[in-house]
């Protein structure tokens, strides 16, 4: 639904907000993003998924009479009266280029690519500013200790909006370092799925070529019959479940 229709339906009372210092009256129930569109803006930058996962619409705001810095995603944060806001659609950040194939999943790989990691003074501004409530300082500390797995886990909800980098006393781009840690942890430290390799080998060996050829040559009615009669894995059952018939398996 477009903003105008929404506004009409909500028929909410208007509240004043200050977009980059300039006052606009907007309906009280809108998100910052919809409020800016209501005010007359058309987004090019600062708007992405509109669902809180892409990191395009990081917004910084203060409230009248309050010294604190607040942050939020424009697409997720509801306007408040007398909020003073600015979006930060881009913040410059240093990202190291590396060869993932040859990269060792060791602390040294991270330290070498991002020596600025040790400029962290543990001020915690990164954690305070994170709109996703990621414990940024905790994963930075894990990285300094060389615990890539912990850093990968703690940073998992990061949407790479860049607000942490904008506030960092050590001038690092935490989210790029976390990305490196997650890839090393996921691709090189976690155990590989053995069943996956086996299935790939079966497919490469042509184990299903005849079965699929058979399905492809069926009439729609024949296919519907096979489809309807296929055995369903029980919903609450264990992973080890096996079907009654081995037809269709390797």
């Amino acid at each position: 639904m477009d903003t105008a229709a929404l506004t009409e339906k909500v028929a909410a009372k208007a509240v004043p907000i200050y977009i980059m210092g300039k006052r606009y009256e907007v309906p009280e129930a809108l998100t910052i993003m919809k409020a800016m569109e209501y005010a007359g803006y058309q987004y090019i930058r600062g708007c992405g998924c509109r669902g809180g996962v892409c990191g395009a619409c990081a917004t910084v705001y203060r409230k009248a009479g309050d010294y604190k810095i607040y942050t939020g995603l424009a697409c997720q944060t509801v306007v408040e009266p007398d909020m003073y806001l600015a979006q930060i659609p881009f913040y410059p950040a240093n990202r190291a280029t590396y060869d993932f194939e040859s990269a060792e999943p060791t602390p040294e790989t991270v330290f070498k690519l991002y020596p600025e990691l040790f400029r962290c003074v543990a001020c915690n501004a990164c954690t305070k500013v994170c709109p996703m409530d990621v414990e940024v300082l905790d994963y930075v500390s894990a990285l300094k200790r060389g615990d890539l797995k912990a850093a990968a886990e703690i940073s998992f909800d990061c949407i790479q909006c860049g607000l942490c980098a904008s506030r960092c006393m050590g001038e690092m781009a935490q989210y790029h370092i976390a990305q490196l840690a997650r890839r090393l942890a996921g691709g090189k430290l976690a155990a590989k799925a053995e069943h996956l390799g086996k299935m790939c080998a079966d497919i490469e060996g042509g184990a299903f070529a005849d079965l699929l050829g058979g399905l492809k040559s069926m009439s729609v009615d024949e296919l519907k019959k096979v489809y309807t009669e296929r055995e369903m894995e029980p919903h609450m059952g264990a992973d080890e479940w096996t079907p009654a018939s081995s037809h269709g398996l390797a």
Partner: peptide, 12 residues
């Protein structure tokens, strides 16, 4: 997971 699944069932 070859013990219970295959491209045959995925296709269906």
């Amino acid at each position: 997971k070859g013990h219970k699944d295959s491209p045959y069932f995925h296709y269906l």
